[in-house]
Design a protein around this nucleic acid. Structure first.
Lengths: 249, 249
DNA sequence: GGGCTCGTGCCACAATGTGGAACGTCGTGC
DNA sequence: GCACGACGTTCCACATTGTGGCACGAGCCC
């Protein structure tokens, strides 16, 4: 509730990132704020280098280069994106389903950081930057399963929100599933977050075993075949493992 | 000069990115600001998801995953970073020199977005996020050479700053060099920006021919061999071309 | 050419963020 | 074991800071 202008500026920054390139008017509608306020915010962010006027249309704003100075820190220095992309493309080619790479944020949510699309006319869609809860998705549970029990307990203590009627909201149920993930090497989400969406995921690990990210293949319910699950699980796990290995190379 | 708190918050964000994980005290020393102000800024940034308390030491702050949701337009769409990394690694392996990937920012500077290090005890160092002027570096001129003459003129009109005694500050001289780059396919920087640093670069292009980025190999003066220049130029150009092709695939 | 929309600049007002000072906690050394 | 110092955190009266209504100018469409 503090630093109103700062909070708002950051929201504007995120909005520009999603809609770029964007005009002052579009943002005023989006936020319901006075034009002059939005305008001042944009100019300030631009002066700081985080935003810039678009080259083609100077009344449109887009993200500036300054954010690039901050990105590597968020990715722990290593080029996670670069090393994970290749295995993700191969996985997409093999399965023809959309592949996502997500990183955990403060033990609360997963953030999508990279995506390789499939060419099905009907397919799942998560934008880069989208967040989802740890306990309700395959990627989230793939990460949770690699955390020490104390941190899992801490996360559970915050409560397990229900999203669909199959969301695991019981701590014991969740822990049992995490055990299964550790033995099988992959996590599964069957309509447990967004109805009609299924996913299979595996973790990318740091040298010390800390989960750094998760590779996930997600698809509409209609194309999810439980019989092929072990095979798909193995393939996703292989891709994640390859990313892990390329990272330390 | 406006939005003091916003400007300062962004500076703090950058400082955290550079020094993470960092404490309140370290930042107060760095900025010379009152503890309470820094503290409030950190909490605000954390509430917005841009910062988070370190998991290991909760009094230390680090960059949150949220920043990954904000990507510059240049990196939007197909992942430039991901497709360029592989060719860059091969180039590094072949030449054993540090490879950089940079993108142009608003026709003013190049920003380093990826790096593959070599293992020489003495080597060049540019951090991801670093900027350099377009006319004085190999990467910058590789990009300039692909721009329409009107935009080059516009850039030149802003003035060509001198950095060393070989920096091209004469417009005609620069344009002649751009011609050479177009015919040879690679740009060279021989102590024209930072004394003692040489580089060879080639552009990564968009479908319509707009320069999107540049791949550059940079090395200390002492390891720069003019005789091998055509060979190195061809290799760098090949790597850049491969990135261009993989991008559209 | 008049009316509309959109980006930009201005300025009086008060809501907002400021930073000094006090508090709590941990670790250290006497 | 106690006093001290270093550090992160909280509080609050003050005035500096950002706010947003308004007006201007440019481009566009009827």
């Amino acid at each position: 509730m503090e630093m109103k202008s700062v909070t708002r500026s950051l929201r504007v920054l995120e909005a520009v990132a999603q809609h770029q390139p964007v005009t002052v008017g579009e943002l005023t509608k989006l936020f319901g704020l006075p034009k002059s306020t939005v305008q001042r915010t944009l100019v300030t962010l631009a002066e700081a280098g985080w935003l810039r006027a678009s080259r083609k249309d100077t009344t449109r704003w887009e993200i500036g280069a300054r954010v690039l100075a901050v990105r590597p820190a968020a990715l722990q220095g290593s080029s996670l994106l670069a090393v994970a992309h290749e295995p993700m493309v191969r996985l997409r080619d093999a399965l023809n389903e959309t592949i996502h790479l997500s990183v955990p944020d403060v033990l609360q949510s997963m953030v999508v950081v990279d995506r390789v699309d499939c060419d099905h006319p009907v397919r799942t869609f998560h934008a880069i930057g989208d967040t989802s809860p740890l306990h309700a998705t395959a990627a989230g549970r793939a990460v949770l399963a690699q955390l020490p029990a104390s941190e899992v307990d801490e996360f559970i203590a915050h409560g397990l929100e229900r999203f669909t009627d199959t969301t695991p909201t019981d701590p014991d149920e969740l822990c049992a599933e995490l055990d299964r993930i550790r033995t099988d090497g992959y996590a599964v989400n069957h309509n447990q977050y967004r109805p009609g969406i299924c996913a299979v995921a595996a973790p990318v690990l740091e040298e010390d075993g800390t989960p750094l990210a998760a590779v996930a293949v997600s698809m509409p319910d209609s194309r999810f075949d439980p019989n092929r699950l072990p095979e798909w699980g193995r393939m996703v796990a292989d891709a994640a493992k390859e990313a892990t290995e390329r990272r330390s190379a």
